[in-house]
Computed example of a mutant assay.
Amino acid sequence: MTVRARPASRVWWRDLHAVTGLVAGAGLFFLAITGLPWSVWWGQQIRALSNEAGLGQPRALWAGKAVSAVPMKDRLTQAGWTMEDAPMPVSQPADAPAIGLDRALAILDGLGMPRGYEVALPEGPTGIYAAAIYPRDVDRQRLISLDQYTGVPLVDVAFGDLGSVGQAIQYGIGLHKGEYWGRLNQLAMLAFCLATILLSVTAAVMWWKRRPAGGLGVPPWPRDRRIAATVTALVLGLGALFPLTGLAILTMIGLDLGIQALRRQARRPAAA
């Protein structure tokens, strides 16, 4: 696995393109897969399926508890990917006054809530004190909800309480964002991004070196229909898996068809 010849040769650029793609392919695939849960549609589907299978949110912690229709993400910014759409529990209205923020913070500290957490104050008679932290070290993630009148923990979720899929995705998100392993993680992600740019540059240079005079050098349609069918299936699959990629492909197809139509129009003889 080497790069032959010199930069002046097309072989050098071809080998550089191939070697870069081979080495960086696994990393780019990892970035794509770990970024998928952040997408609007796929993220919702993956979260829903993992929760349904008991591999995401620890629903047993909500068993027998009254909950609201308000998801955690509406009140907390650090709920985490797995827990962001979990329902917020509710306080049972009482004649006693609320415990107050100072008492709530003391209870949270006593429960071992890591420093730097955020707190959402109760809204209305059934509101709760909700606290969450989503640090760089996801193992320290924690989410606690307190009854506003008694201070009793209603839900207490640590990272270890999450299902295997939820944990794996949040580990992947941390690696994707360069939050694990310090500078090494960030440099690795940077290398994969630079590799993507390098692949684009080498592809453009190879095309420039092989383009025919007076043309773009567009490859002809393959004679073997199986090749065309395979490529079409791959493109359709990628477009479905990554909606923005599919939109970009459709945009390019539309531009290509539009340019061809304009060229045909220009070639027609003018009407007498």
Rank of each mutant, 00 (worst) to 15 (best):
R4C: 01
R4E: 02
A5D: 15
A5T: 08
A5E: 11
A5F: 07
R6W: 14
R6K: 11
A8L: 09
A8R: 10
A8K: 06
A8N: 04
S9P: 01
S9E: 08
R10K: 01
V11A: 11
V11E: 01
V11I: 12
W12E: 05
W12G: 00
W13G: 00
R14P: 00
R14G: 14
R14L: 14
D15A: 02
L16I: 02
L16H: 07
H17M: 03
V19K: 03
V19R: 12
V19G: 07
T20H: 01
T20S: 13
T20W: 04
G21L: 08
G21T: 08
L22W: 07
V23G: 01
V23H: 00
V23Y: 10
V23F: 08
A24G: 11
G25V: 07
A26C: 13
A26R: 04
A26D: 09
G27H: 12
G27K: 13
G27F: 09
G27W: 08
L28F: 08
F29T: 15
F29P: 04
F29C: 15
F29K: 02
F29R: 07
F30C: 11
L31E: 12
L31R: 04
A32N: 00
I33K: 03
I33H: 00
I33Q: 03
G35T: 12
G35P: 05
L36T: 08
L36K: 01
L36F: 11
W38E: 09
W38S: 13
W38V: 03
S39H: 00
S39D: 01
V40R: 15
W42N: 07
W42L: 04
W42T: 07
Q44Y: 12
Q44H: 13
Q45T: 10
I46Y: 00
R47Y: 03
R47I: 09
R47T: 02
A48R: 15
A48P: 05
A48H: 11
A48Q: 13
L49A: 14
L49E: 11
S50F: 01
S50R: 05
N51P: 03
E52N: 08
A53N: 06
G54R: 04
L55F: 06
L55I: 01
Q57K: 10
Q57I: 14
Q57L: 15
P58Y: 05
P58A: 08
A60K: 05
A60W: 07
L61V: 08
W62I: 02
W62M: 12
A63N: 11
A63S: 04
A63R: 09
A63K: 11
G64I: 12
G64A: 13
A66W: 09
A66E: 14
A66L: 10
S68V: 11
S68I: 06
A69V: 03
A69I: 04
A69D: 14
A69S: 15
A69G: 13
V70F: 07
V70G: 02
V70Q: 10
V70D: 03
P71I: 05
P71V: 10
M72R: 05
M72L: 15
K73N: 14
K73Q: 13
R75F: 02
R75G: 00
R75K: 09
L76E: 07
L76F: 06
L76W: 09
